[in-house]
Amino acid sequence: MLGIDGCLKQIMEIPGSHSATLVDGASGLAVAAAGRADPVDEHEDAAGTTDVVRAVLATPALSTTRTGDDIEEIIVCGTRGYHLIALINDAFEGRLFLHLLVDRDKGNLALARLRVRELLGEMAGGEGA
């Protein structure tokens, strides 16, 4: 019976995790955050990443099929780290997504992606799903 904070704590245990923010894309609200010292940052983070998600969803050039497919992840690779924006495509109201910053030297992008999918699945499915 994990709450949101419990899930974020597990996400922060992914090797190389620097910070994680759970954002409601419909409003740009930072629902929860972990790994940040400054509380102002998480709201700026939420507003900024919401714009990115919106832009990607509104760009037909970034869809794979003619009718448009759903976006699961947006990855931005910096020289020092990876930004992983994982969208929760289920019945959640709004468009919730997780923004995870992974250190490039200490972390592994493929591992982080797998773990994030697993944990978000657990969170969305509730216990025993």
Partner: peptide
Amino acid sequence: GRAPGLGRARLEMFALLAAF
């Protein structure tokens, strides 16, 4: 937390969204 379709995390999320 016991309800398979809900879970505690989702309830928290819905509660926060509704409250804000």
